[in-house]
């Protein structure tokens, strides 16, 4: 079932930071790391991320479960590299037809996989520790996002678990009406398509009514909105973003100092 609730302990020192600050920090941290293809900088970054984990109140098991799909991606990277690596320098380890595995290929693969984890984990941590309502509040109050868009999107987000249930309801209703797919993949695909279309139609209809209900409660009024839930962007929040920039910059600096740095472009 879909759940959008944060899974971390909310009172952890960094989980309590302003959602916009957390999001900005995660983006800064990730974007800096994208710049390199070497294994050293991401390895340092992952170490930093894991060390900070307790401060976010995220249990390693939760993180592992959320990041598990990345393993599939890692295998994908490996397979693609073995077949299509640009750089096949180094000692030859395996050679069989189009498959040529060298030590250079393995180092590149290691770099790519580590980079993938290093770039993704900050986002996973932020998502795990942030409530969507708080994020919308902070976007409006601290990032000057127009309230109509932030709360409009938030109201639509509320539909995510509902639409998840709706998907099951539509499937049940189809079953109750005698429609099921059995084992034939083509029938399954067709049933998936028709269920998805029904979901989309229902979602838009629901959205239309939701918009009416929101207007009925004054959402489109010209009066300036007030805020019931205050979000503050304090010094600690600024420090979090700055800290993210410094730490990822440091990881890059170490990699440059060690001579392992491989810029993304060039």
């Amino acid at each position: 079932m879909i759940s959008l609730e944060p899974v971390a302990r909310p009172e952890a020192p960094l989980a309590r930071r302003n959602p916009v600050a957390k999001l900005a920090a995660a983006l800064v941290f990730s974007v800096v790391l994208i710049a390199t293809l070497d294994p050293v900088a991401p390895a340092i970054a992952i170490a930093v991320e894991l060390a900070l984990l307790p401060l976010f109140g995220v249990r390693p098991r939760v993180l592992a479960r959320r990041a598990a799909p990345l393993l599939v991606g890692a295998v994908g990277v490996l397979v693609t590299l073995v077949l299509f690596a640009a750089d096949r320098s180094g000692r030859i380890l395996v050679e069989a037809g189009p498959i040529l595995v060298t030590s250079g290929v393995l180092i590149t693969a290691l770099g790519l996989v580590l980079r993938m984890f290093a770039v993704a984990l900050p986002g996973v941590v932020v998502v795990a520790t942030t409530d969507p309502t708080d994020l919308a509040d902070a976007l409006v109050q601290n990032a000057k996002v127009p309230a109509r868009f932030a709360y409009g999107a938030l109201a639509a987000f509320r539909l995510v678990p509902l639409l998840g249930q709706e998907w099951q309801m539509i499937s049940m209703a189809r079953r109750a009406r005698g429609i099921d797919a059995g084992r034939n993949p083509l029938t399954r695909l067709r049933l998936f398509g028709s269920t998805a279309f029904t979901l989309l139609v229902g979602a838009i209809r629901r959205g239309t009514r939701l918009a009416v209900a929101m207007d009925a409660r004054g959402f489109d009024a010209a009066t300036p909105r007030s805020v019931a839930r205050r979000q503050r962007f304090g010094t600690a929040d600024g420090l979090l973003v700055a800290g993210a920039a410094v730490l990822s910059g440091a990881a890059l600096a170490v990699s440059i100092a060690l001579g392992t740095f491989r810029p993304l472009i060039g």
């Binding site: 969507p132 987000f157 209900a213 004054g218 009066t223 300036p224 019931a228």
Partner: peptide
Amino acid sequence: ETQLVMARCGDDVAFGLENRGLPAEHIW
């Protein structure tokens, strides 16, 4: 169901009051 806007019950009741610009100390 389509009249509920927010994810938490209290926030949902507060939604209309915010739209009317009621100050926070009167909302809760």
